[in-house]
Amino acid sequence: MKAASISRGLLRNPPLITLALVALVWIVAGLSLRGFAAVGHLRYILELSAIIGIVAAGQTLVILVGGIDLSVGAVITVTAILLPLISPDWDPTGLLGVVLTLAIAAVIGLANAMGQVFLKVPAIIMTLAMATFLQGLLVLIAGGSAVSVTNEAVIWLGSARPFGVPAGIIVWIAVAAAVLTAIHRRPFGARLLALGANPLAARLSGVDVSRTTFAVYALAGLFSGLAGLLVLGMNRQGYVGIGDPYLMTSIAAVVLGGTSILGGRGSYAGTIPGAILLVTTTALITVVNASPGWRSIMFGSLILALLLISGREAQR
């Protein structure tokens, strides 16, 4: 009876399902695969998860409000290529370049929102057009060549390990704390969810639709930019296409975490284990030396399976 009610409570809590699944995979893989449970390996998994997790923070907000951001990959590429080009040489810390680049990323997000608010273009079209536009622009600016980074701040982000914890993970923890607070403890989050579930009722209840849309897409741009800096710091090189893998993984992490793709229900609390689960799966495939094709097949199956277990979309 009690066990049944606990398991039912678990099924009603998608973030917990995803977290339990991560724990299960880690335990089974740790016991059966050599090297998987090594501290260095797990830390590396988390470091890679941080990038997806930060991109997916913006994506979570966007999806909660009932939209989608298909430009996150392009924004990552933009920041990774633009930062080396616009960081001024006279700033030894590199912070100015970081700030400028993040501002540009946020402005791209604002442009996404403007298209929706003023031109009434649906999110999926607006952000797809933005992504295509940016990719074209980058080919013109950077050509086909890679740019190397010399910015100290970004190199630190990609390689420093204060107290043995990679800087990327620390940034992720900060982002997660901020986003979770915004969703659950600030009026912003409640407005977001109301808007995602019923835009008309939310508007008539006094929710400022344009302002919320601007905030959400600017944050999505900002977080993508931040992730772009991390990618650049770890890679030491930016090139056209470097952000592409993060578009679908960011959406997958959100959905794996139990957030409704239709908006209005979910939390970043699910996206966090969702991101870790995605990276863990990739790592498993690498450790057992299977074809990367299996990775995609597993992602697809996982998304559907978790969806069916909790019946989350069906409840609507």
């Binding site: 600030r186 009722a201 209005g264 229900r265």
Partner: peptide, 28 residues
């Protein structure tokens, strides 16, 4: 369609217009 956010709780619906009025240390 216009008055309520149906899938959300009664409490969330009752709070929607008053959000931001009851705050402590910048949090709800």
């Amino acid at each position: 369609k216009e008055g309520l956010v149906l899938p959300h709780t009664i409490a969330a619906n009752l709070m929607l217009p008053s959000l931001g009025r009851l705050m402590r240390h910048g949090l709800r």
